[in-house]
């Protein structure tokens, strides 16, 4: 297992970028997936409901 500095750098420079792109696409798909719209709408309004007691 001879990991030298160059290997790490090459790995960081290549896979780091793929990781970033994959993650960005994943997040965008999740955020804009049509069936998620309802739950997001519910979530954003939920905090404005009555919140005096647990379980309300």
């Amino acid at each position: 297992m001879g990991f030298d500095h160059q290997t790490f750098v090459a790995f960081a420079k290549s896979w780091g970028l793929f990781y970033l792109i994959a993650l960005a696409i994943g997040v965008l798909i999740y955020a804009f997936w049509p069936s998620n719209r309802k739950r997001f709408d519910r979530a954003k309004k939920s905090i404005l409901d009555k919140d005096d007691r647990p379980g309300d």
């Binding site: 997040v27 965008l28 999740y30 955020a31 997001f40 979530a43 954003k44 309004k45 905090i47 404005l48």
Partner: peptide
């Protein structure tokens, strides 16, 4: 403000 956040999606991104 008594108003829901403008865009929930934007907050996720």
């Amino acid at each position: 403000a008594g108003r829901p956040i403008f865009s929930y999606r934007l907050s996720i991104i």
